[in-house]
């Protein structure tokens, strides 16, 4: 297992290097000059050229990349062109916001999605199975952006139950923070609940038909033990894979949710930075998100061994 983890860490570093190089390249190929963007659309040629020189943007691409990479190895992600503060500081302030929302949504979607899926599998063909299956299909198909605007209209503007936008840290004002986070978290969780409900249902249906489940029942075990100890554990492998993938989807989804609700998280930061070609922030963000995804994949792979001893690595 240790050698497996070591190999995966080396793979991760290689992946991050390749991803960072290509994202740096893409940002440089994209039309537009960061210095011009920083100075605004009415900037004068002289100002733009002076700013390019000051920021080192007049140097060749490979030298710029090499300089950035050498700094990253020293733990320096550089300074944002637009925010004029170290990229690490920007991430330090925003990553907890995105993680807070994403983890809450992840937990909610995990609990509700898997429970709904199991319930549907047990009550297959029944009224609730049909209702939940239809709702899950709607939840997958509906655009998150549209759902957000409708939510704001109904619960913010019409009823006034929830705030329309904004972010407050739960440590500053827990009640206000919870009110502000409710809609974004639910919005992030909806696709997860829907996908997990469908996957859990089909996995469970497949497992409950297996011989060892029949054997368990014939041994006189209670239905609860049969389902939770024997069926669910075996049905979990595709669900865990899906949950691992879903973390990536949530990080992507947070871009939309944070934009709609004006939440100062990583998504909000990265979209604005990409539009304005604040490439040091985007580079740092790619590196960070890449690391999160690689670590998640590693954890998913390790969990397979726990769920199914046949898959344990030597």
């Amino acid at each position: 297992m240790l050698s497996f983890i070591s190999r995966r860490i080396i793979h991760t570093i290689a992946v991050l290097f390749i991803v960072s190089f290509f994202s740096f390249l893409l940002l440089h190929i994209m039309p537009g000059d960061p210095a011009a963007a920083m100075l605004g659309i009415e900037a004068k040629k002289e100002e733009v050229e002076a700013m390019r020189k000051e920021l080192g943007l007049d140097r060749p691409f490979l030298i710029q990349y090499g300089h950035w990479f050498a700094n990253v190895l020293r733990g320096d992600l550089g300074k944002s062109l637009m925010y004029r503060e170290p990229v690490a500081n920007l991430f330090y302030a925003r990553l907890p916001v995105t993680l807070y929302l994403s983890l809450l949504a992840f937990v909610i979607s995990g609990i509700l999605g898997i429970s709904a899926g199991i319930f549907c599998a047990i009550k297959r063909g029944g009224f609730f199975d049909q209702i939940i299956s239809i709702s899950a299909n709607i939840g997958i198909a509906i655009p998150m952006f549209w759902l957000g605007i409708i939510g704001i209209y109904l619960f913010g503007l019409k009823t006034g139950w929830l705030p329309i936008y904004g972010w407050t840290s739960p440590f500053d004002d827990f009640i206000l923070s919870s009110k502000q986070a409710l809609m974004p978290v639910l919005l992030l969780a909806v696709p997860g609940i829907s996908i997990l409900a469908r996957q859990s249902r089909s996995s469970m249906l497949e497992v409950v038909r297996q011989d060892y489940i029949r054997t368990a029942r014939s041994k006189g075990l209670s239905e609860r033990i049969v389902l939770l100890r024997h069926a669910l554990k075996n049905a979990l492998i595709p669900i865990v894979t899906l949950m691992g993938l879903h973390i990536r989807i949530m990080v992507g989804g947070s871009v939309l949710v944070e934009t709609v609700f004006s939440i100062p998280g990583m998504g909000f930061l990265l979209v604005g930075s990409a539009i304005n070609k604040d490439f040091l922030v985007v580079q740092g963000g790619v590196l960070l998100i890449g690391s999160i995804v690689c670590v998640t994949n590693l954890l998913v792979d390790i969990s397979y061994g726990w769920l199914d001893p046949r898959l344990r690595y030597e």
Partner: peptide
């Protein structure tokens, strides 16, 4: 914005 600013300036 960056593309437009670059083209204009």
């Amino acid at each position: 914005r960056p593309g437009f600013a670059e083209m204009a300036s």
